[in-house]
Design a protein around this nucleic acid. Structure first.
Lengths: 136, 136
DNA sequence: GGATGTTTATTAGTGTACAAACGAATATGC
DNA sequence: GCATATTCGTTTGTACACTAATAAACATCC
């Protein structure tokens, strides 16, 4: 049987990612990208943490998380401070504005997931998410 | 129930993409990226086509396909020519080197797909790929 | 307490990915 | 046949994503 690009997992994953990004951007009203959204929600979950740890907990390398933190700071959603016990660290935490949009972010995220998974039935979504997680 | 980033389809898709890229790079010996690989295989499938059509058939916008074509050309895998019937078009086709590595590319792609899907059983892979395609 | 190694953050370079704007060439409608 | 619309390619700007190199701070071992 002939080799076909359209059957390659990497290619299909890329297409699925594109569709998700499209759904995300359609609903986004806070001017966030999917990556910025992930980092911001994670900060909400963790309370406050070093920039380095935030990168590890959101699967972004040091160069990527640096840029994301810079842009979230510029947009006013987070604040940065020095770690009194470790001069290497930059401590990242939510600003007042960041805290105030957290509920809105969760609603927004749920809507994006819902619409992205719309082609699948509720039972299928469960199975699909389980299998997708095993590929990470 | 609390909102959790680790359950969001967009976040998990990003992680799956990262793992695939890691598998791809581990096996890659021709110096290609996943995107360059996709474009090159597609050119092999189509014979020759305009840069614009190649972009549409690989889901890359005009700016992205431009860069990919530039790099594939620099690496010697493709050649560019003018379309005699339409002066707007740049015709893209495989170089002799590009043709000579096509079998190797297919073997390589099959190995990457195999290893990326390794956590799933053969039956699960079928189901998973079907569902993933519906999300594109 | 001093050499060694690790962690944290920054920077530079390369490669996707998309939006927007532009000019040139082609197609369509009337 | 001419105005209008569409297509094709390029460029600019922003945002991930990774590698590699660097420097400062911290930890550990002896």
């Amino acid at each position: 049987m002939a080799y076909r690009l359209d059957e390659q997992i990497g290619y299909i994953l890329r297409l699925a990612n594109q569709r998700h990004a499209s759904v995300f951007n359609k609903h986004s009203d806070l001017g966030l990208t999917p990556t910025q959204f992930a980092a911001l929600v994670r900060i909400g979950e963790m309370g406050s943490c070093s920039q380095n740890l935030l990168g590890r907990r959101t699967a972004m390398d040091v160069a990527t998380i640096k840029g994301v933190v810079t842009r979230l700071k510029a947009k006013g959603f987070i604040q940065l401070s020095a770690d009194p016990g470790d001069k290497r660290r930059t401590v990242v935490s939510l600003s007042a504005q960041g805290q105030s949009v957290m509920d809105q972010l969760h609603d927004f995220g749920a809507r994006v997931t819902e619409e992205t998974l719309a082609p699948l039935s509720p039972d299928e979504r469960k199975v699909f998410l389980d299998m997708l997680k095993r590929l990470t």
